[in-house]
Design a protein around this nucleic acid. Sequence first.
DNA 1: ATGGGCATGTAACGAGTTACATGATTTT
DNA 2: AAAATCATGTAACTCGTTACATGCCCAT
Lengths: 197, 197
Amino acid sequence: MAAPRGASPPSPTPTGYALLGLLSFGRELSGYELKRWSDNLRFFWSAPAMSQVYREIERLAAGGYVEQRHVVRDGTRATKVYRLTPTGEQAVRAWLAEPPDPPMLKHPVALRVFFGHLLTPDQLKRAIEAHRDWCERMLTELEVLRCDLGEDQTFHNAALVAEWGSGYFRGELAAAEGIEDAATTAAHPPDGAATGS
Amino acid sequence: MAAPRGASPPSPTPTGYALLGLLSFGRELSGYELKRWSDNLRFFWSAPAMSQVYREIERLAAGGYVEQRHVVRDGTRATKVYRLTPTGEQAVRAWLAEPPDPPMLKHPVALRVFFGHLLTPDQLKRAIEAHRDWCERMLTELEVLRCDLGEDQTFHNAALVAEWGSGYFRGELAAAEGIEDAATTAAHPPDGAATGS
DNA sequence: ATGGGCATGTAACGAGTTACATGATTTT
DNA sequence: AAAATCATGTAACTCGTTACATGCCCAT
């Protein structure tokens, strides 16, 4: 089930390219391991569902981007592991070299502030506080990641992104405090005012 | 084609709720106008495609969340306009009152830095510079939006979010400068090193 | 022996996209 | 006369999700 010779295989999806990227650090990884590695991208990229990782890695293998190998690890346990092929490495390099799409953000808390006139001050406050909690959780998780990465030169760039992320979350935290005051002390129309009475 | 009496209509999609939110400012809007209004959410929410706006607003009308009206505006031009119903307002209020999902970010530039070992310093630099240009463009567009909003109390919350967004983009701009130095001066393995030679 | 982590998938669905198709009105 | 904007949609597709199904291995 290698790459077909004549017809070029379908291009990987964005998630597929991300998996190729993870394999470019040189290790052979199983689908399960790929999922856990890709969770480290969650600070700036949506972490794919387990089932999608399996689907994608199959596609990548079918397209010749990765090579599948059956191994028995730790004695008796059988797993499939994947290794980046030269084709795969070339593909991910080419993809990354393209001009980047603009970042895409879906921010449910900002949406709630924007439509703040549809919420009570109390509801709005709770949403913003949930956001602050989340930012703090992300900050501590980034700390952990930084420790895991250590001083290894291989992950120098990863560490840079972790720094970047920390800055971002600290900014969000500060912004959330400001917004909380401004949004919850503002005048709110009485319930039901939007459609008239 | 109003809301069915017995069986409750399907819930709106996230984009559907956003459209309801836009209609909650009290104006009757056409599909085309809704698209342009929803573009103002692009700083913190993905702006839907035109075709999706039309599909969603139809669904919302079928579910009784909005009321459709045929009007002839500016003399001869016929358009359909939509108005929020009490049902629709209640639905969007209830949706916004739910605990918010965590923000979801897809940041192709951060991804490129993370996988920086697959790019030349020059390619990486270009990606980061494209990001800075984009941030600057967003900042000026936010300025424009702030002017459009004016001092109108109706859009007080929208103005707050615009402020928030400006802060975010200024942060990104600053971070990008730092990253550019750190990432492009780092040691890079020679091309092809990832899969061995 | 029970629960948690490792390991691999399938099926059904959902929400969004791009490309296409059409035509009126307004501005240059 | 051409181009931009207003205006409304359809069709096909892609990428992702959740829910489900299965089973091994290890620690308590």
